[in-house]
Design a protein around this nucleic acid. Structure first.
Lengths: 258, 258
DNA sequence: TTGACGGCAATGTATAGACAACCATTGAAG
DNA sequence: CTTCAATGGTTGTCTATACATTGCCGTCAA
């Protein structure tokens, strides 16, 4: 509360009013940066809705929307009559964010690397075709990668993408580029939601060898289907994480508690 | 789209304008009921914001807020220029909802039962005290239950609740009543969020015996901390599910995709 | 010292309206 | 028949305002 008095107004970057990026989102990102950089620590109070509106020269509802975005992504919470406060989640792997392995590891301060095991074009099996909502036998790109952090094998990933929707995708090398990055930037894919199923499985022989763990050791399996707004699956993928090195976490916000 | 023309207006229950329950929430629940009952199937279009506003005699922003609630809880999604559509998730155990085991199993059409292993009052250990944000040694109620579905052991649950906040809780029998139900109805607890950590672990000897699975078999572990709006933990709990019988699932909505 | 009250600040809820962006359909022009 | 333009419907963003509800704190009186 006293902080806002001390804080110089000069630190506020003016908003881009060109109309391409929503104002509320620009404010949200500005606040997020302050949280990520540590300028705003856990427990600190954020500027009030009224104050944000004054600082950024927007209406209170717009400022409110920016704060709402922080709340639903788990970086802040509000108390009626008190204010809005930072609550930076220190979580292992927040599955509420659709990040790839590379981004995940960077956030954890580890050096990610990847070993391409397979990049082929296959005909969809019955099971896969059903999940992808295509005809059996349709061509699908399959990507199988071993993921390492600081040189230690951490996960095994397989990704299946129907090539019908993304012509030419099989000719791109994913040694360096992130799959999600390519889909977003080159094909303009708009993701609507993702369904994830989480299981604890015993390692198969192949998995235990690649991940250098004992046979039948516990594995955290996350299967994911990413859907577009047209309800067409973009990708069906699964990841197998070493049970002894990996935890998934999630923050369930108030809005979804019944 | 044609549906809204056929639908008689008489089915609309008038809103309770007494002011105790927000209008947007009443609309949200009314829509949710139609989804749950099957009156609105997956893929059906919901009434437009304008239409809802007209039907319920509220402003468009209020109708919009009702739809927003459905979206963030994964029961609907919107497309600019087209409308809002139902997308009822048919998922195994949606961890986006804070349901207890009993409600979970009922939703899956199985008959839940429970065996109370332990209901004691203990002094908090270092580790537990830190998680509950209380002093070490403070009294805590511990509930350990074996959970069965159709008579088959499915999960092991331990729940720790600081008694300081809930005097008399240790005298209530939880053989029949749900813990969440009691906390909500008798103590008026307002939950702000829950953090969950999901792991794949090998079963200990005790776990394998109680769950009738082989030793070191894979177990899906979900640890949960439930917090109030005051940032005080209400409950620290963990569940151990049989890896061969249980899957957790989650639908990540657009709003939280970066 | 304590308790009651009032005022202030903050979020929660709700209204009314405006324009932009996007999608599907229709109808006219080629 | 095909293509393009207009149109209406829908969600997305934004403004301006109002009142309710809650938490905090200081003042004043008992």
């Amino acid at each position: 509360m006293t902080k806002s008095q001390v804080q110089p107004v000069s630190t506020v970057r003016p908003l881009d009013k060109s109309g391409f990026i929503p104002l509320y989102y620009q404010i949200q990102r500005a606040l997020m940066e302050k949280i990520q950089s540590g300028e705003l620590a856990t427990g600190d109070s954020l500027a009030s809705e009224e104050e944000l509106a004054r600082i950024y020269q927007v209406s209170r509802m717009t400022a409110r929307q920016a704060l709402h975005g922080l709340k639903t992504s788990g970086f802040a919470f509000s108390q009626k009559g008190r204010g809005t406060f930072v609550t930076r989640p220190k979580l292992e792997k927040n599955i509420m964010h659709l990040r790839g392995f590379t981004e995940d590891m960077k956030h954890l301060g580890m050096v990610p690397s990847s070993k391409l095991l397979e990049q082929t074009v296959v005909n969809a099996s019955e099971e896969l075709a059903e999940k992808l909502k295509v005809e059996p036998g349709e061509i699908v790109m399959r990507l199988r990668r071993l993921r390492l952090a600081d040189g230690i094998p951490m996960a095994l990933e397989e990704s299946n993408i129907p090539l019908k929707q993304f012509p030419g995708l099989d000719k791109i090398s994913f040694a360096k580029q992130s799959l999600y990055f390519v889909l977003r930037e080159s094909y303009g894919v708009r993701v609507a939601w993702a369904d994830e199923v989480i299981e604890a499985l015993p390692a198969t022989r192949e998995e235990s060898e690649l991940l250098t763990i004992p046979k039948k050791a516990s594995i955290l399996s996350i299967s994911r289907t990413i859907m577009t707004t047209e309800e067409t699956p973009i990708e069906v993928a699964w990841s197998r994480y070493r049970g002894d090195r990996y935890k998934a976490s999630i923050r369930v916000p108030t809005t979804t508690i019944e």
